[in-house]
């Protein structure tokens, strides 16, 4: 979707953290991206390289930790894995699913120097 602006937000957070945590260069960035977050890993890698150019994270490696989609099925009363927002419960076929995990997009950690 808007991976470019997401990467710009990542850079802003990195720049804030650089001041707070005293580092001048970022070598690796770990992002946690949920399967239901609407973020495309390929597009994220592409945008990341472009956005980080000339910044303190220039040439930094991007590692994406993919988090599977998890939903609570109301009729079954249990957690089920889902790939898409429109998936049905694999046990009972219901769409009464409440997303409980896999919709996040977070910066997890950085390797810095």
């Amino acid at each position: 979707m808007h991976e470019m602006s997401l990467c710009e937000s990542v850079l802003q957070i990195i720049e804030q953290q650089a001041k707070a945590q005293q580092f001048a260069k970022v070598k690796t960035v770990w992002l946690e991206i949920g399967a239901l977050s609407g973020v495309e890993a390929d597009a994220m890698h592409f945008s990341f390289e472009v956005v980080m150019q000339g910044s303190l994270a220039d040439q930094a490696k991007l590692e994406i930790i993919e988090v599977p989609g998890l939903a609570w099925c109301m009729p079954c009363g249990c957690e089920v894995l889902v790939q898409q927002l429109y998936d049905e419960c694999p046990h009972c076929g219901s769409h009464q699913l409440q997303i409980v995990d896999g919709d996040q997009m977070r910066i997890k950690e950085l390797e810095v120097e």
Binding site: A24, G54, L56, M105, E109, L110
Partner: peptide, 28 residues
């Protein structure tokens, strides 16, 4: 500004891990 800062940074420094745990859209 940032590339200037970068060129003045001291030479060899130890790599370390920094925990962030922040939502990318936290600012929005």
């Amino acid at each position: 500004e940032h590339s200037a800062e970068h060129s003045h940074a001291p030479g060899l420094t130890q790599a370390r891990m920094v925990q962030i745990e922040q939502d990318i859209l936290a600012k929005n």
